[in-house]
Design a protein around this nucleic acid. Structure first.
Length: 204
DNA sequence: CTACCGATTGACT
DNA sequence: GTCAATCGGTAGA
């Protein structure tokens, strides 16, 4: 029931994995307790021709996890915060799926302690917010998500193996390749970090 | 070593 | 809608 998704789940391109991981459950277990959330928003970062990918200019200490095996975490720091990715495709192919938002399910009280808000809508809406609520930092960079310990992803046990309805949009915050349709989210979820950007208001 | 900058967030007009 | 705090990573001297 809370078995981790197997390695084979991640051995595909990040667009495929990103769409498939929507509706799955992210689980975090620490000494403080367990928090879980339903993944509702992700972005794909491609191994080829994607200048927004941190690995676009080759391997560095920071992005090394993306060059490792699939099914491991890539956690990076930005603006004094952390963001969680799952590594996709075979080792050596640097691609990943950024987890941008989850719907909080278990451990709400623990999330409130870790965040400065009690509002369920703001607990895990945004990549750095969910990392704070789930106590995810760089110590989990490279973590094997298929072990089923500390941090993993599992099937959503209490919902139908639904065909979730998926919306596609451009990625948030990137300064390169802004027009690629590589953000995916569950249509209508109030826990998505932001709606699809209107074409006329495109940032530059 | 210094300088620059970002896959963000929260506060504010 | 706008704006800046924040700090690790990276590039370059």
């Amino acid at each position: 029931m809370h078995d981790p998704l197997p390695r084979s789940f991640y051995t595909h391109d990040p667009v495929h994995v990103g769409r498939e991981i929507l509706g799955k459950r992210l689980v975090r277990a620490t000494a403080e307790g367990v928090t879980t959330g339903r993944i509702v928003e992700v972005e794909a970062y491609l191994a080829c021709d994607d200048p927004a990918n941190h690995a676009h200019r080759g391997q560095t200490r920071r992005n090394a996890s993306m060059f490792g095996p699939p099914g491991h975490a890539y956690v990076y720091a930005i603006h004094a915060r952390f963001c969680l990715n799952v590594v996709t495709e075979p080792a050596g192919v640097p691609s990943a799926v950024l987890i941008r938002a989850v719907e909080p399910l278990d451990g709400l009280e623990l999330m409130r302690q870790r965040r400065s808000t009690g509002d369920p809508l703001n607990l895990t809406r945004g990549p750095a917010r969910l990392c704070e609520a789930f106590a995810i930092d760089r110590s989990l960079d490279g973590w094997n998500l298929t072990r089923g310990e500390e941090l993993w992803v599992t099937v959503e046990p209490n919902r139908d193996p639904q065909p979730v309805q998926i919306a596609t949009a451009t990625r948030v915050g990137v300064t390169a390749a802004q027009d690629l349709p590589l953000r995916f989210f569950i249509t209508g979820s109030p826990f998505v970090s932001r709606p699809a950007r209107a074409h006329s208001k495109r940032r530059r």
